[in-house]
C-alpha cells in the first residue's frame, strides 16, 4: 500500500464522514461548516488527481464564495437554532430505505464497467493551469464569454428578486 492509496482512503473517509455530519447536524451553521470540510477534501482529491487548477477553483468558488453566501443568508435569517420541530420518523425511514436501495442499484450497475483502466495519480499535465488556460481561451472561448453573460443575468436576477416591492 503506497502513500497515494493511503491519502485516497484518508480523503474519502473525511469527505464521506463530513458529508454525513452535514446531513445529520441540527444546526444549519454547523452543517455549512461541515460542507466546507467536504469541499476541502474534494479539493484534496483533485490535487491527488493532478488537477491543480480545479482544486484551486473549487476552494475559491465553493468554499470561498458560495459557502460564505450561504453563511450570510443563514445568519441574516437568524436560523442558527434548531427549527425543525416536526420529526417525521416514518418519512425519514422511507427516505433512508429508498436512498440505500438507490445506492445499491447504482453500485451494482456501475461496478462492472467495461474498459476500466487504472487512474494514474500525480501524473499527466492535462490539469495544469498552463494547458487548461490554453484550451479555455482557444477552443472554448465562446462558451467562456457566454458564461460571463450568464453571470450578468444571474446578478441582475438576484437583485430583481431580492429587492423590496415599492
Amino acid at each position: 500500500m503506497n502513500i497515494q492509496t493511503i491519502l485516497f482512503i484518508l480523503l474519502s473517509v473525511l469527505s464521506v464522514g463530513s458529508a454525513l455530519m452535514m446531513m445529520l447536524s441540527k444546526n444549519p451553521v454547523k452543517s455549512i461548516l461541515w460542507l466546507i470540510v467536504v469541499f476541502f477534501s474534494i479539493s484534496g482529491h483533485y490535487v491527488l488527481l493532478n488537477a491543480q487548477f480545479l482544486a484551486i477553483v473549487n476552494i475559491i468558488v465553493y468554499a470561498g464564495a458560495i459557502m460564505v453566501l450561504f453563511l450570510f443568508v443563514v445568519m441574516l435569517m437568524n436560523l442558527n437554532a434548531d427549527n425543525e420541530p416536526v420529526k417525521n420518523y416514518r418519512l425519514r425511514l422511507i427516505a433512508l430505505i429508498s436512498g440505500g436501495s438507490l445506492l445499491l442499484v447504482l453500485l451494482s450497475a456501475f461496478m462492472n464497467v467495461q474498459q476500466a483502466q487504472p487512474v494514474l495519480l500525480k501524473t499527466g499535465d492535462g490539469g495544469l493551469i498552463h494547458v487548461l488556460g490554453m484550451t479555455l481561451f482557444t477552443k472554448y472561448v465562446l462558451p467562456f464569454e457566454i458564461s460571463s453573460v450568464l453571470f450578468l443575468s444571474a446578478m441582475v436576477g438576484a437583485v430583481v428578486i431580492g429587492k423590496k416591492d415599492s
Partner: peptide
C-alpha cells in the same frame, strides 16, 4: 462550477 455559482446566487435570493 460556473453554472452552480450562478444558480446559488439566484436560489438564495
Amino acid at each position: 462550477m460556473i453554472v452552480a455559482a450562478a444558480e446559488v446566487s439566484v436560489g438564495l435570493a
